[in-house]
Design a protein around this nucleic acid. Structure first.
Lengths: 147, 147
DNA sequence: ATTATTTAAATTGCATACAATAAAATTGAG
DNA sequence: CTCAATTTTATTGTATGCAATTTAAATAAT
């Protein structure tokens, strides 16, 4: 006796725990990020900038899987907080360059304890975390270009 | 030579591929769900109702990890589309009961191919998918109650 | 029974996400 | 060169997410 709707049960989905876990993890960040006056999306945006210093919206979007519809207001918010500057490229006026300010750079020091704190509240062994990491990237990579 | 900001690199995060993969997976659903006039969140809500038929907002929220701030407008939208009814419980007027309509039930038939289609576009072996599934639930369970 | 507490939804306000469209600048074909 | 196609952001509109507050109903304590 087959259940023709077998696939349509929440507990048989991979997408659902992915979606739920993503949101729960982001919730765990909140108390830490509140102290820095950052949201999670702003935090990962700064994480990219701490590495690169200057970046176009396009490049940022490619790295974060976000488009200008999300990034434009987010970057304006980071700008209003004094963490980044936004300016047009001289060589191509279409391109908006996002650059870290000294205040934005200084935030890195206040944020450096966060990964450790998050690691502590995730109940996965290092091996499990690494396995999940690899599988998540494999899943992500599997979508690229297929759009 | 230690990098004191080692933890603050996007590629060293578990949260980021989780967040990105979740959104990319949900994007893959869109063309299929558009045909049913459903969003992803509405889809998983119906998935619960296809199992239970009647449920309070509270119970639904517990299952989906969502609160009334998200569910109230979502359920009103599903109601306006004719897929669910919303009514107060007789025995406790605080409780709002959500119930599937015949049209909502009928959607299940049009949706039954979706899990298979999604499975096909996820480039993970069954074993990998199962491993990820288990790890995601382990991660999720690790947060319960720690709030 | 009356009041204080608790509980379930709804509401409010803010910040994403993202599709679709628009606007401005650049590039490329003829 | 010149105009059409392309590229990069910005804007618009819709739908979440979620913290915080409010409202209404039920329960508990006295």
């Amino acid at each position: 006796m087959e259940d023709e709707y077998q696939g349509l049960h929440l507990e048989n989905q991979l997408c659902f725990p992915l979606y739920a876990a993503s949101r729960e993890v982001i919730k765990q960040y909140r108390p830490m990020l509140d102290e820095l006056n950052l949201t999670y999306t702003q935090y990962i945006t700064l994480m990219v900038l701490w590495d690169k210093q200057v970046l176009s919206v396009k490049e940022l979007g490619k790295i974060l899987y976000l488009d200008s519809g999300t990034l434009t207001p987010l970057l304006k918010s980071l700008e209003s907080k004094g963490f980044v500057t936004r300016s047009r490229s001289r060589s191509d006026e279409r391109v908006l360059l996002v650059e870290l300010t000294p205040a934005g750079l200084a935030l890195r020091d206040r944020a450096k304890g966060i990964p450790g704190q998050m690691g502590a509240c995730v109940r996965l062994s290092p091996e499990e975390a690494m396995t999940m990491y690899r599988l998540l990237y494999k899943l992500l990579d599997g979508f690229s270009g297929v759009k």
